[in-house]
Design a protein around this nucleic acid. Structure first.
Length: 673
DNA sequence: GGAAAGAGGGGTCAGGGAGA
DNA sequence: TCTCCCTGACCCCTCTTTCC
């Protein structure tokens, strides 16, 4: 009898991509299949694909627990979606449970901005020492262009019609096809009806969507208009141009969508249309939860002076590259403002011609103005200004101050400045496996691959290509699996402290308990305003309502913390707290606003606050920290054995309080004796 | 057997209005 | 003026169940 063969499992988050992978695998004469909860027999397959929902299911956990010794590795494709898509696709949050599998894990992505590496490791439940191997994401065959148009001169739909015609007739080769990306399904429908007659978004039924995709990919329809659904995984060799209508939720989508262009290596155009009389608000800096790189996208669109590739390469690779740095590069609109494409587009913008009937659905000035509710949303994202911006004359002080760029001239200069990526460790300096210093982005390797192979082997071989799986991975893999379990134990110990507090304070006022040591029982129907009622008798209560604003600013990871009280949910659900599930009924949270109220109490009590900022567990807390910074600190996740800092601070307070109560009791006992 | 609906996992945000 | 409450919209997916 033949021994059972070892199998590679690959988790793929998109159905189209999964089917595409299976097709390619079969082309290599390899047996493959899709694993489903309802169809677990994999026959002789050596590579087995799973949908995201299947990978996070209880059925698959039971399956791999039973078959772990026959699993050679598990791979995760397009893993950056773990950050950007987890909010609306909760199945991503369930992938963490797979970190316990004692097999090598390989995480693949071509679109992970450097500032998100730590976030991704935390989200995947991986140790911070996990080696990351990167290669540059520069696509020299793509020309990036931002086209500003004036809604007093033409309409978005009319401009788009002209642009599509121009590209089709003069810039696309015979079999080439193009994509238009829009932010809303409404807009997709509108443009499809008026221009492309071919579309793709999630609300279409499977057959209609597949048919439109087939017509487009075969060139029967030269253009398709799509929501961001088509941004991932479309691997066609003949996409010659991509048009974005606005920033499309962030720079990451522009990189991803632009990446669809001519995978065969020929030159292609990436064009972003932006209305010239609107300005994108630029906040002070990227926020931790901005996983779509919306901030970088706005910064990129505001730029009128320096090479488009600077922000792209800085965001994605942490290294600044311009068109002039890359041999054989297809120049962007800043580096070659007199290209044939830009000259032709300028002519369209200055003299758009008479809009034809059907070009625009109403007398409004753009697709977004078609009288839809989406318009309101778009207005929220775009703030009109009176002055026109100009490609060559505008100097954006914010851009310049943040640019780290070698020049403020209107044209880029060659630069090899490396902004943030630290140098790799010398081969001789073998770092401690647990030391943060051991995690260094390795230099270019065979592919954009993140691996969890043996650390030393990867670090030593980081510059060699291709990466090969070392023969003996068991020690490292077992170590990582054990680390995951140890982290879980630490978190469960913390949950026990929360459980005791919740059971004690159910239906009670936590502020009365925290500030006066009195257990005040809340009566249904009788209002007990926290802080105000708790300090009854005081003439004035400082910051009695500030906690409400603080509460609105706090944003914990969705579905992982109770939205009413802030305590963790499964698998770290405290005893006495129900699972906050998907029901029509209001969840019966026993301690509403528990975390936020206790945090506010800590911050407003000088003695406790000074104790907290001295605590070595809370690095980053300072005496005069502002509310914005404090809120950001509260939402920060330190490591895999911690909850968000807010929860950690409350747990610390509960521990301190228990110690004080214990000491007080002992003192009373001594006195009574 | 195929198409459509529901579930998953549970909010967030903005805008408007009422009441203190 | 501030706080609280209500309403409606929210791009991006896949699997399972129900209905015809």
């Amino acid at each position: 009898m033949d021994p059972p063969q070892m199998v590679t499992y690959v988790v793929v988050p998109n159905r189209d991509l999964l089917l595409d992978h299976m097709k390619h695998t079969r082309e290599f004469k390899m047996e493959t299949c899709q694993w489903l909860a309802s169809k677990q027999d994999i026959h002789n397959s050596k590579v087995v694909y799973l949908a995201l929902e299947s990978a996070g299911s209880d059925s698959f956990e039971a399956y791999w627990t039973k078959n772990e010794k026959f699993i050679s590795r598990i791979c995760f494709d397009e893993i950056h979606q773990m950050l950007s898509h987890a909010e609306f696709r909760p199945a991503f949050n369930k992938l963490q449970r797979l970190a316990k599998m004692r097999v090598p894990h390989i995480y693949l992505t071509a679109s992970l901005p450097v500032r998100m590496e730590e976030h991704l490791l935390l989200k995947c439940g991986l140790p911070s020492t996990t080696p990351i191997i990167r290669s540059p994401t520069n696509r020299t065959n793509i020309s990036y262009n931002i086209i500003r148009w004036d809604n007093r001169v033409t309409t978005e739909l009319h401009l788009l019609t002209n642009l599509v015609n121009l590209l089709t007739e003069h810039f696309l080769e015979g079999g080439d096809i193009g994509i238009i990306f829009a932010e809303s399904k409404h807009k997709v429908n509108l443009i499809s009806k008026a221009i492309t007659h071919c579309k793709s978004h999630a609300d279409m039924n499977f057959r209609e969507r597949a048919e439109d995709f087939r017509n487009w990919s075969k060139g029967i329809r030269r253009w398709i208009v799509a929501s961001t659904t088509l941004i991932h995984g479309i691997d066609l060799p003949n996409v010659g141009a991509v048009i974005f209508l606005g920033p499309v939720f962030g720079l990451l989508n522009i990189v991803q969508g632009g990446g669809r262009i001519l995978r065969s290596g020929r030159f292609g155009h990436c064009i972003v249309l932006t209305e010239s009389r609107t300005e994108l608000i630029l906040l002070t800096g990227p926020e931790d939860h901005d996983f779509d790189c919306e901030w970088e996208g706005r910064k990129w669109l505001r730029n009128n002076t320096v090479c488009r590739r600077i922000e792209l390469s800085r965001t994605m690779d942490g290294k600044v590259k311009t068109c002039h740095d890359l041999p054989g590069c297809f120049f962007c609109d800043i580096c070659k403002p007199d290209s044939d494409l830009l000259t032709s587009i300028d002519a369209i913008i200055k003299d758009p011609g008479v809009p034809q009937e059907g070009d625009t659905p109403s007398s409004s000035t753009s697709c977004a103005d078609a009288g839809s509710s989406e318009n309101d949303e778009e207005n929220d994202r775009w703030v009109p200004i009176s002055s026109l911006t100009n490609r060559t004359s505008t100097t954006d002080p914010d851009w310049l101050s943040n640019a780290d760029t070698p020049s403020q001239e209107s044209h880029p200069v060659s630069s090899s400045a490396e902004v943030s990526a630290p140098p790799p460790p010398p081969p001789s300096a073998a770092p401690n496996a647990l030391s943060p210093a051991s995690r260094r982005p390795a230099k270019a390797c065979a592919a954009n691959v993140m691996t969890q192979f043996r650390r030393q082997a990867v670090l030593n071989n980081a510059k060699k290509a291709p990466v090969t799986l070392p023969g003996d991975v068991s020690t490292s893999v077992a170590y990582d699996a054990a680390l995951v379990q140890a982290n879980e134990q630490v978190k469960h110990a913390k949950v026990k402290i929360l459980s005791e507090a919740i059971q004690k304070l159910e239906g009670k006022c936590p502020i009365c308990w925290a500030s006066k040591s009195e257990i005040f029982t809340l009566v249904p129907g009788v209002k007990h305003t926290p802080f105000l009622a708790c300090r009854a008798g005081h003439s004035y209560v400082h910051n009695a309502f500030g906690w409400i604003d603080f509460k609105k600013r706090l944003k914990f990871t969705k579905y992982q913390y109770c939205y009413m009280c802030g305590v963790p949910q499964k698998p770290y659900l405290p005893d006495g707290h129900p699972t906050v599930g998907c029901t029509l009924e209001e969840p019966n949270c026993p301690v509403p606003d528990f975390i936020v109220l206790i945090i506010w109490h800590i911050r407003q009590s000088p003695a406790i606050w000074s104790q907290a900022i001295r605590c070595p567990r809370f690095l980053g807390l300072t005496k005069d920290i502002g509310l914005t910074e404090f809120t950001a600190w509260c939402m920060t996740l330190k490591d895999n054995r911690s909850f968000h800092n807010a929860v950690e601070l409350v747990i610390w307070f509960l521990q301190e309080r228990a110690s004080a109560d214990r000491r007080s009791l002992e003192l009373k006992l001594k006195r009574s004796l």
